[in-house]
Computed example of a mutant assay.
Amino acid sequence: MAIHPQLPNAITVVRIPLAVVFFVLLLIGGSFGDPHLGVRLTAALLFILAISTDWVDGYLARRFEIVSDFGKLWDPIADKLLTGAAFVGLAILDEIPWWMVIVILVREWGITVHRLVVRREHVVAAAWMGKIKTAFQGVALAWALLPIHVVIGFVPWAIVTMVLMWIVVALTIASGIDYVIAQVRGARSSR
């Protein structure tokens, strides 16, 4: 079966407007105390759909050997827009602490800016630890966004959410350090 060579890139690009629509719906839906639970659920499901496309575009690119520099560069950017929108939205709604969001966003966008700066020399693909971090962020954010509190109660939901966010912060910091070490080693070996 042949697929169009630009399909993975198209899926990546679609994630960008989905992030915007998701963010607007999340803010309209509000926190769990607000009467717009259906809008919040729609936002959560849109996030899950959008974050799932990250796996789909990567799988297609590898499976059909159509990995591109565009995809290597823009796939992480699309991911960071989507997850960043979720983190910021949850902080605006006062469901996770701003300090966690700031730590996560500084790492995410710092590395993204670095990738953009060095893209003329070489394209930096996501490392395995960064991929684990992104996958865990997706799971943790999906948990935090879904109205699971209706089923299990607010306190258990809040406890699990905070544990997941602490793990996300730890993985974010660890993968950031791993990225910096890899770049320093790469720069030394190229001299």
Rank of each mutant, 00 (worst) to 15 (best):
V113K: 13
D75V: 12
I11M: 12
V21I: 14
I11G: 07
D178K: 08
G58I: 07
R191N: 14
L93G: 06
L7E: 02
G110F: 04
F70W: 10
A78Q: 01
I104E: 02
K131I: 01
A144I: 00
F22Q: 07
A125F: 10
W166L: 13
A170M: 11
S175V: 02
A50G: 06
L73W: 04
V14G: 08
V163I: 15
G84M: 05
F70C: 10
I51P: 00
A61Y: 04
L73P: 07
I111K: 12
L145K: 04
V160Q: 04
W157R: 05
D178R: 09
P17W: 08
L90Q: 03
V101H: 12
L41Y: 06
L26A: 14
I181H: 09
A187M: 10
I16N: 06
V163P: 02
L41S: 11
F64R: 09
V169L: 12
S190Y: 12
G130P: 01
D69A: 13
V13K: 06
R107G: 03
A170C: 08
L116K: 11
M100T: 05
V163L: 11
V160D: 01
I77V: 15
V180W: 08
R185L: 12
I102R: 14
E95T: 08
I3K: 11
W98H: 06
P147W: 01
F87H: 11
A10L: 15
L141G: 03
V24H: 08
F70I: 10
T172L: 10
K80T: 01
S31L: 00
V155T: 15
R40P: 00
V118C: 10
K72Y: 07
G186T: 07
L60V: 09
H4I: 03
A85R: 02
M1Y: 14
I48K: 09
P8K: 10
R185M: 12
P156T: 04
L164C: 10
L25C: 08
Q6I: 07
I148D: 02
S189L: 15
V184P: 06
V163Y: 03
W99S: 15
V24T: 11
W128T: 14
L93R: 09
T83G: 07
V155I: 13
V103T: 15
V180H: 06
A61Q: 05
R63D: 04
L45I: 12
D178V: 03
A19D: 01
M1P: 15
A61W: 03
V39W: 11
